[in-house]
């Protein structure tokens, strides 16, 4: 085989993968207690964001879809923004990920500006990272500890219908434990919300 063509093909393949949100960790899918798969996605300004850049910090990954009524409720109530603010000075990084197949950076930017979000929304419209993490719902939350290990997978809180006066925030509890250097007690809950609208 012509060597130049081979290299060109490999480069093209690499380019395509990068464009599709390249997942680079050894393990194919995310699983609790194991290293969280690395990814490389772009924020609303076109900047690359890699999970591995945040080693040593606690990272919250929040699956988002501005069209989903559960997401809309939490954003109108500022659930995520308040939590991100609460832990921002304690080495906690918040990253929202949008795997909705019909949305792009422009949609994300509009949402981020509307709610003056202090964290980026990453574009995963190909669904690659969402499927690697097994993100099922919007919202669906994952927490990665300082060692890069996945330590929480589930719902934001215990109130799917939004009717509780004082919902119990699983993510808040987990972050409280993590910043104290403790183990996360409730590591897995049932996420609720709209299904992630992956491409068909």
């Amino acid at each position: 085989m012509n060597r130049r063509i081979l290299i060109a093909t490999l480069l093209a393949a690499g380019f395509l993968l990068a464009g599709a949100g390249l997942v680079t960790a050894g393990s194919a899918t995310a699983s609790l207690g194991h290293p969280a798969p690395d990814f490389n996605l772009r924020d609303t300004n076109g900047n690359e964001v890699k999970l591995s850049e945040y080693k040593g910090k606690i990272v919250v990954l929040e699956w988002i879809n501005p069209d989903c009524p559960f997401v809309q409720r939490h954003y109108n109530n500022e659930t995520m923004k308040k939590l991100a603010d609460k832990y921002r000075d304690q080495d906690v990084v918040w990253l929202a990920v949008n795997s909705t197949h019909y949305m792009d950076a422009a949609n994300n930017k509009q949402w981020a500006e509307r709610f003056k979000l202090p964290y980026p929304i990453l574009d995963d419209k190909t669904g690659t990272v969402g499927e690697t993490y097994g993100a099922k719902t919007t919202p669906h939350l994952f927490i990665v500890d300082r060692m890069g290990k996945l330590v929480y997978d589930g719902a934001i809180d215990d109130d799917p219908r939004g009717q509780s006066q004082s919902p119990l925030s699983y993510v808040d509890s987990a972050l409280q434990q993590l910043v104290k250097g403790a183990e996360v007690e409730v590591t897995e809950t049932r996420p609720y919300g709209c299904s992630v609208k992956y491409k068909k």
């Binding site: 795997s99 197949h101 669904g127 969402g130 499927e131 993100a135 099922k136 299904s195 992630v196 609208k197 992956y198 491409k199 068909k200």
Partner: peptide, 8 residues
């Protein structure tokens, strides 16, 4: 079954 193997 929705895309992403999401069962409803």
């Amino acid at each position: 079954v929705q895309p992403g193997d999401i069962t409803g």
